[in-house]
């Protein structure tokens, strides 16, 4: 900067060199803004209206994931249980936790539904079938999912299964989507992969029958 301020019209090459520095400053500044400051600004944090502990339910309560998150008989997925489902156990407070007390009073007693914040929710024009992406279906080729089903869920959903309190959701201020809302290219990693369901001879010997063939038809995922 010293040099830049020195009036020396004879040394023109110095000017070029002197311009590099502000360029680099601008560049680095932009990178800092773009990669560190911008993302948190774009998202607002949204907390769950009721503190919910998966640990208490799964480890202490001995519940299975599928007690609440299951495929209905008609093929649709139950998603997050409604107040009625919670009230099956929490008709009266089961413990001493003041949050549970509040939940029973505010929601169970009145029948009001909890506006749970969802980390992974797709817009109306997307159709996603949990039944087609089930542990049985995916696990038939990827045994790791059969061993640890949560690993499959966590391909799209945050790993809250072992959490004591649900994390805040990052909600995009422009779109209203969460930071976890999957983009089409993410679906296409499998759907557009022609070999995704190509059965090997080995598979056939094992009588593996994929529940369906991968299909990248537009309406497979859109409604």
């Amino acid at each position: 900067m010293e040099e830049k301020n020195t009036m020396n019209p004879g040394v023109k090459s110095c000017t070029c060199g002197a311009l590099v520095a502000p360029f680099v400053v601008g560049l680095i500044g932009a990178l800092i803004v773009g990669w560190w400051l911008f993302p948190p600004l774009l998202y607002s944090k949204k907390l769950q209206p009721v503190r919910f502990s998966h640990v208490v339910h799964v480890e202490d309560g001995g519940m299975a994931c599928s007690d609440c998150h299951f495929n209905r008989e008609d093929g649709s997925f139950s998603g997050i249980p409604n107040t009625g489902k919670c009230a099956e156990c929490h008709a009266e407070p089961m413990g001493e936790d003041p949050e549970e007390l509040r939940f029973v009073e505010e929601y169970v007693a009145t029948g009001k539904q909890v506006e749970w914040v969802r980390y992974q929710v797709q817009p109306d024009n997307v159709f996603f079938s949990h039944a087609a992406h089930s542990v049985e279906a995916c696990g038939s080729c990827h045994p790791e999912f059969e061993e640890n089903p949560r690993e499959l869920c966590n391909k799209c959903h945050p790993d809250v299964g072992g959490s004591d309190s649900a994390p805040a959701a990052q909600v995009n201020r422009i779109t209203g989507y969460t930071s976890m809302t999957m983009k089409m290219w993410q679906c296409e990693r499998c759907h557009a992969n022609e070999n995704h369901f190509e059965l090997t001879e080995e598979d056939e010997a094992k009588h593996i029958k994929p529940v369906t063939r991968a299909n990248n038809g537009c309406q497979v995922c859109h409604k």
């Binding site: 495929n71 008989e73 649709s76 079938s129 039944a131």
Partner: peptide, 15 residues
């Protein structure tokens, strides 16, 4: 009613 097809397939899968 393409959605009905998707639902029918899911129902079959679950069953």
């Amino acid at each position: 009613c393409h959605h009905r097809w998707m639902q029918a397939k899911d129902k079959a899968r679950v069953a």
